[in-house]
Simulated assay, not measured.
Amino acid sequence: MAQHAKITLPQLQAMKERGAKITMVTAYDYPSALLADRAGVEMILVGDSLGMVVLGYQSTVPVTMADMIHHTRAVMRANPAALVVADLPFLSYQVSVPEAVANAGRLIKEGGADAVKLEGGQAVVPAVQAIVAAGIPVMGHLGLTPQSAVQLGGFRVQGRDEAVAAKISADAAALVAAGAFSLVLECVPAELARRITAELPVPVIGIGAGPGCDGQVLVYHDLLGLFDRFRPKFVKQYARLGEATVAALEQYRDEVRQGRFPGEEQSFK
């Protein structure tokens, strides 16, 4: 059952401190946000993964600010109690610090988000500092960063060797020092994620990062079995709604063809 009061940053921090797990789910529209919030998750992410899951792109790179604002607005119309974080899309924060602040502000002012998320480590620290100084909460994202997946060698686990693991740890500390209220760790070895989570004072949310994080995030369509283009190892399907939906549509098709729908009860007199 959904929370009645809006989840706040201090509440999430308190959950970290007492060892309570945090749940985060992506949502890209009004109905998915409504259902996720009814389930009582603490955070909703309007991820730029919508480019692949909803818009049919091959990566997150083509997603625009207009896309993110449009989908964030739809999510916010559900009036979720969950804290809503919206992704800054590719090249909306890398070009310059002023542009990063302006685009983060758009997600808050025009989209209605509670916070923003961006990918990268020490290279984005100036942008994080400036966005936080403008009064906008920032969540970091390290490990597998989809916007730069080509540079990383594809969608693969990051941090298996010591040098990369050390860089991820250093980047995490730098982001927190810059003012990030939370971090996402994606596709990193479980032990590395556990160590970073223990070292950092802020909530660390994992996706493909093992059970040692402060919380977990999954894509709505992945966990419900609604997206089948690919299925990462870290995804657990809690339902197979895609299969059920196809079956329902096939039944509808058959009933129309056979003249069984609409029936008496669906007709007006």
Results as ranks from 00 to 15, higher is better:
Q94A: 07
P98I: 10
E99D: 09
N103M: 05
N103D: 00
N103V: 04
N103K: 02
A104G: 06
A104H: 01
R106I: 00
L107C: 02
L107D: 01
L107G: 01
G112Q: 03
A113K: 03
D114G: 05
A115F: 01
K117V: 06
V125A: 11
A127S: 12
A127C: 03
V128D: 01
V132Y: 08
A134D: 04
P137L: 03
G143A: 08
L144M: 14
Q147A: 02
Q147E: 14
A149Y: 11
V150I: 14
V150R: 14
Q151M: 15
L152A: 12
R156F: 06
G159D: 07
A166P: 07
K167P: 03
A170R: 13
A173F: 08
A177N: 11
A177S: 14
E186D: 08
C187W: 15
V188M: 07
P189G: 11
E191D: 14
E191H: 15
E191A: 11
P201K: 13
P203V: 11
I205A: 04
G206C: 10
G206N: 09
I207C: 12
I207M: 15
D214W: 12
Q216S: 10
L218I: 11
F227H: 13
D228N: 15
R229A: 12
F230D: 05
F230K: 01
F234Y: 14
